[in-house]
């Protein structure tokens, strides 16, 4: 004997079928979109850094070459920041074995840790002496990091949009938290870009121009992305 739920779902079948038949559905698998995003994001970040740095300082990746006391320390920090961006991206984009994403504790960790880890790596012990801020390069560097905020916004905004496309309709659970984690990951790519671009060593500049955009994109991801991510 059919249960009431079976009878009711059978009764609803024609309506559901009609609605489904008249609704288009994407066919590009999410895994493909995630792989494409993982290929595009580092290339995009590098491209923006090279173009911006050439335009402003006349050399690629000025932050890695101007006013640097230790090349090894810069490369180590660059590797750590790249690792931070990549790891947060992989966790935030992961669909998990059950298709419902990774555990919420991991997402909370990403949201909570990306900004402080980035700040600890770049602000607590700046790799630049601050000579570039007082005219070493002949380029005026704003103490409020206006140029860096712009570059971080371009990179993080583009990366966030790429993430949104990659995971569109794919997050059935905790979409706000996932949006925040994606925002933090996008912010980390923006942070990596300004680290490679900017030779400033001033604390105020680093906090406002480099760290603040990451915090803002974490917030933005949580607020704005949620709707696009839900099925």
């Amino acid at each position: 004997m059919a249960t009431p739920s079976e009878r009711r779902s059978e009764y609803l079948y024609p309506r559901v079928r009609r609605a489904v038949e008249s609704t288009p559905a994407a066919t590009t698998r999410t895994r493909m979109r995630i792989l494409a995003a993982l290929a595009i994001v580092p290339a995009l970040t590098a491209l923006v850094v090279v173009i911006a740095s050439e335009a402003v300082y006349g050399r690629p990746a000025a932050g890695l070459g101007i006013d640097v006391a230790s090349a090894a320390a810069v490369l180590m920090t660059l590797a750590l920041l790249a690792g931070l961006a990549l790891a947060s991206t992989l966790f935030a984009l992961s669909q998990g074995p059950g298709g419902l994403g990774i555990a919420s504790t991991w997402l909370v960790s990403i949201v909570a840790l990306v900004v402080p880890v980035y700040a600890a790596l770049t602000v607590l012990q700046p790799l630049h002496s601050g000579a570039a801020d007082v005219g070493l390069t002949g380029v005026t560097i704003s103490p409020w990091g206006v140029r860096c905020i712009f570059i971080a916004t371009v990179v993080s905004g583009s990366v966030l949009a790429i993430f949104a496309v990659a995971l569109r309709r794919a997050v059935a659970v905790a979409s706000g938290l996932r949006g925040g984690a994606l925002g933090a990951a996008a912010g980390a790519w923006g942070g990596l870009a300004v680290f490679a671009f900017c030779p400033s060593g001033e604390t105020q500049h680093l906090l406002v121009g480099h760290v603040l955009p990451i915090a803002l994109f974490t917030l933005l991801g949580g607020v704005v992305l949620s709707r696009a991510l839900r099925p």
Binding site: V20, T23, A25, A26, T27, G99, L167
Partner: peptide, 9 residues
């Protein structure tokens, strides 16, 4: 579910 079917793992 239909619209999001490409996201199925």
């Amino acid at each position: 579910l239909h619209r999001a079917r490409a996201t199925y793992v």
